[in-house]
Write a protein that binds this DNA or RNA. Structure first.
Lengths: 238, 238
DNA sequence: CGAGCGTTTGAGACAATTCAAGAGATGTGG
DNA sequence: CCACATCTCTTGAATTGTCTCAAACGCTCG
C-alpha cells in the first residue's frame, strides 16, 4: 500500500473548493484576486501512505482538504503514541515547530488530499496578507479544542461517545447523514488516543448499543439517539 | 482581595526584562530599534484578582511576565472547570479566539504581572514585524505542550509527579532551587485540572513522601529525588 | 484455505472514586 | 487575642470503573 507514489500537483487558493474554510478565509474578493501567487503543492495519499516521518526535517505546515490522517510518534520503548486524528479542514504540523526535526509521523487512514505550506514561505505570506494571521489562530484553536473535546472527559463512556460524535460531525460535512459514523481507524488507535484500553472501547460500544443509542456493524456505527449521546458525552445524567 | 485596583502602566518591549522570551524573541538588534512603537499596557494583579471574566468581549491576548494565573470556566451546572495554569513566559487568551465573547475567566494565584496585546493591534504588529508570527507559533506550541505534559499521563501518580516537576521548573526560573515547589493553588484546583479526585492528590503526595521522593510541608514541597520523580512521571519502572 | 491481525468476552486484580468523618489552617468579629 | 465559622486537607472503608491477561472468534488478504 505504502509503495504507491504520491501525485503532487499545484493548487491555487483561488480555485480551491474549501478556501473559505482555510487560510484565505478572511479575505474579501479583492484580496482574493491579490493572492494569485498563493499556490501550494497538494498531495493525494492512499490509506497507509505516510505524509511525513518522525526525524525528518520540519519544513511544512499542512492543510487537510479531504480524508483523514493520524499523527503519532514512537516512544523510546517502541510503543506507539497516537497524538491526533486530523479531520478536514485542519491546519496541522505546527506542533513542535521550534524543533528542527519532526517529532511525529503522519499517516493517511483514508484517501486524503493534503496541501503543503512551506515554512520558508510563511513569513512572506504573512507580510503580504496579514489578515491570514488571525485565520491561522482560528485554525490552531479549532484543533486544540477538538483534542480537548475527547481527552478532557473523565470516564471511558464519555470519551468514546464524544469521539463518535466528533466523527459523525465530520461525516455530516461530507454529505452523509450525521447519524452515520465510520471508524476508519482501529480500536487500538482510538484507545491509544483516548488513553484507555482497547477492550474498553469494545465494551463501551457494546453498552451503548445495549442502551439502544447506537447500532454497530463492523466499523460502521449508526447513531439512533444523538441527543442522549450528547448527554452522555457531557456527563449529564438523564 | 478582589477589590484592589489594578495599576495599569505602559511598557515598551525594548526595556522589558523578558523580551527575549516573548514576542520580540527573534528580532535582531536593528529590528529591536524598530519597535519603539511596540508598547503595551501591563497590569499588576494580586492573588485573587481577576484579569478577565467569562462573557466579556474578547479583545486581548495576554503575556504573563511574572506570577501565576488560573484560567477556568463555569459549566452549565455551575461546576468549575480548570482549563490551565499559566506560568511565565506564556502567551494566552487565544483559546476561543473565534468567539466574540470570552469563554473563560482568568484569576491570579500569585502576585502577577501581565502584558496586554489588543487583538485590534495584532494585524499591525504582524505587518510591521512578520518575524513575530513564528514566535507566536512557538509560544502557542509551548502552551499546548505544557498542557499535554500533565494530561496525557494515564495514572494519577504520573499526573501528579509531572505536575510537581512542571511547577518546580517554574520556580527554578525564578531563581529558587529546582527541588523546591510551592503549591499556590488548592488541591481541588489541581485535581480539577488533572481530572482526578482531590483526595487522590492527597494520597499520591503521601505515597511519594513515603517513598522518600519528596517532603511535603503544608503547600511547600521539597523534592529529594528529582531523577526518580522524572522516571515516575514518564511511567518508567525502576 | 490458512495466517495474521483486530475484536469480543470473561474473570480476577488493581486503581481511583465516593462518601463520611475528623484534623488542621485561615479569617472575622467581638 | 480568643472563639467560632469556614475552608482545605487527610484518612479510612466500601464501591465502582478500568485494566490486564487469556482465550476464542471473525475478517481480510495473499
Amino acid at each position: 500500500m505504502e509503495g504507491i507514489k504520491h501525485k503532487p500537483h499545484t493548487n491555487t487558493c483561488q480555485e480551491c473548493r474549501i478556501a473559505h474554510l482555510c487560510l484565505p478565509a478572511n479575505l474579501n474578493k479583492q484580496q482574493m484576486r491579490g493572492i494569485e501567487q498563493l499556490q501550494f503543492n497538494s498531495k493525494i495519499l492512499n490509506p497507509g501512505d505516510h505524509l511525513c516521518h518522525q526525524g525528518e526535517k520540519h519544513e511544512h505546515l499542512y492543510l487537510l482538504r479531504s480524508g483523514m490522517l493520524k499523527s503519532y510518534f514512537n516512544k523510546e520503548n517502541g510503543d506507539e503514541f497516537v497524538m491526533q486524528f486530523h479531520l478536514p479542514p485542519e491546519l496541522f504540523g505546527w506542533e513542535g515547530i521550534d524543533d528542527e526535526q519532526l517529532s511525529f509521523s503522519i499517516v493517511a487512514l483514508d484517501y486524503s488530499n493534503v496541501c503543503e505550506v512551506p515554512l520558508s514561505q510563511l513569513k512572506e505570506i504573512n507580510t503580504k496578507h496579514p489578515e491570514i494571521q488571525m485565520q491561522i489562530f482560528k485554525l490552531i484553536n479549532q484543533t486544540v479544542r477538538k483534542n480537548n473535546i475527547a481527552m478532557l472527559r473523565t470516564t471511558a463512556e464519555q470519551k468514546v461517545s464524544t469521539f463518535i460524535l466528533l466523527l459523525s460531525k465530520h461525516y455530516r460535512t461530507l454529505g452523509h447523514p450525521q447519524y452515520l459514523c465510520q471508524l476508519t481507524m482501529t480500536h487500538q488507535d482510538i484507545a491509544n488516543y483516548l488513553r484507555i484500553a482497547p477492550e474498553t472501547i469494545s465494551r463501551v460500544l457494546h453498552n451503548l448499543q445495549h442502551q439502544g443509542l447506537i447500532k454497530v456493524t463492523r466499523k460502521k456505527i449508526v447513531i439512533n439517539n444523538i441527543e442522549k449521546l450528547h448527554y452522555l458525552s457531557n456527563g449529564i445524567k438523564t
